[in-house]
C-alpha cells in the first residue's frame, strides 16, 4: 500500500493530507502513519462505497474532509460511521 508513503511525503512538504483506507488495510495505515486516515467498512477497490450511491460517497468524503479540520495530531485514524 503506497498511499501512506505518498501522504507522508506531501505532509512533510507542509500540505495537510487525509487518506481513505478500507478496514482490511487498517494495519497498513497504522504502520505507515499518514497524518489523517478515515477507515471505511467497504470492499477493496471501493473505498468510498458502492457504485451510484452518491449520498454514501458524499458522507464518506465529508467525514474525511472533516478530519482535515478536527485532527490535532498525527497519526489520527478514525472509523467512518454511516
Amino acid at each position: 500500500m503506497t498511499v501512506g508513503h505518498v501522504a507522508r511525503a506531501i505532509e512533510s512538504r507542509g500540505i495537510p493530507t487525509v487518506c481513505v483506507y478500507i478496514e482490511a488495510f487498517r494495519p497498513d495505515a497504522e504502520l505507515l502513519k499518514p497524518a489523517r486516515t478515515l477507515i471505511t467498512p467497504h470492499l477493496m477497490g471501493r473505498p468510498l462505497g458502492l457504485p451510484h450511491r452518491h449520498e454514501q460517497q458524499r458522507a464518506v468524503i465529508k467525514a474525511a474532509l472533516r478530519l482535515l479540520e478536527t485532527a490535532d495530531h498525527a497519526p489520527t485514524v478514525e472509523a467512518f460511521v454511516s
Binding site: V6, A9, R13, I15, P16, T17, P47
Partner: peptide, 21 residues
C-alpha cells in the same frame, strides 16, 4: 513521492485527499 509533493506545493493546493486502490 518527494517530486509529487513538490509539484503539489507548486500547484498551491491547501490540502490533498488521497484514496488507496
Amino acid at each position: 513521492a518527494p517530486q509529487w509533493a513538490q509539484m503539489l506545493k507548486d500547484d498551491g493546493v491547501d490540502a490533498v485527499f488521497l484514496t488507496a486502490g
